[in-house]
């Protein structure tokens, strides 16, 4: 067994272990942390497949940003495990049915021979100076320019929609206007000196 193959199996084992822990741990924070581990190890496997740009972006986007926000939410919520598991036994037959159907579907696609080595020969190893980032960029911005732009616009729409949903202005909410805060002057805006006669 070459060292490369050994690393692949090592990371694959960690990945499967982490993925199993994600769905079996009772504590949602632990599950989320195992999901982080799963992302990290799959990034390592992508690195082995000579896709360093995708691997690093997976770490950057999913581990560095998405999962942080995910953990943020999971930690803030006080999740009651008892109510969450309430319908477990009742829904189990349906869940098993769906799971079996999915496994069979995956098997039919992958095991059909369409993806066997005869139809998809393993790609030749690329030279050491091969630049995954450059080659991805050069196809993305030439050949797939329009699909790429369309995807970007759809994402932009999603961002604007998400921001729009949170922009409900209630009349009772108080806002600070930094522009006004900066312009405020001590003499005329904040302190007013009143002259009045002494009272007794």
């Amino acid at each position: 067994m070459t060292f490369e193959l050994f690393t692949f199996y090592l990371f694959a084992a960690i990945l499967v272990f982490a993925a199993t822990m994600v769905i079996t741990r009772k504590n949602p924070v632990h599950s989320a942390l195992f999901l982080v581990l799963a992302f990290f190890t799959s990034a390592a496997i992508w690195l082995l497949a000579e896709a360093e740009f995708l691997a690093i972006v997976l770490v950057l986007v999913y581990v560095g940003a998405v999962m942080v926000l995910f953990l943020f939410v999971v930690m803030m919520l006080d999740i009651d495990v008892a109510t969450m598991r309430a319908g477990f036994v009742r829904n189990l037959p349906l869940a098993i049915l769906i799971a079996v159907a999915m496994v069979v579907e995956i098997f039919l696609v992958i095991g059909s021979g369409s993806f066997s080595l005869e139809n998809f020969a393993s790609p030749p190893a690329l030279p050491a100076d091969y630049n995954n980032t450059r080659s991805l960029g050069s196809v993305l911005y030439t050949e797939y320019m329009y699909p790429f732009e369309v995807a970007a616009v759809i994402l932009l729409v999603a961002i604007i929609a998400a921001i729009g949903l949170t922009m409900r202005k209630r009349p009772t909410t108080k806002y600070q206007d930094p522009g006004k805060q900066v312009r405020v002057r001590k003499g005329e805006d904040r302190v007013s000196v009143l002259k009045m006669d002494a009272e007794d």
């Binding site: 982080v36 740009f53 690093i56 972006v57 950057l60 942080v68 980032t133």
Partner: peptide, 21 residues
């Protein structure tokens, strides 16, 4: 490595986990 800068951005973004955990 070719993607040195990307590697750095990715690693510095991982550092936040220490604080959160």
């Amino acid at each position: 490595i070719n993607a040195g800068l990307l590697y750095l951005i990715a690693l510095t973004s991982v550092g936040v986990y220490g604080v959160i955990i």
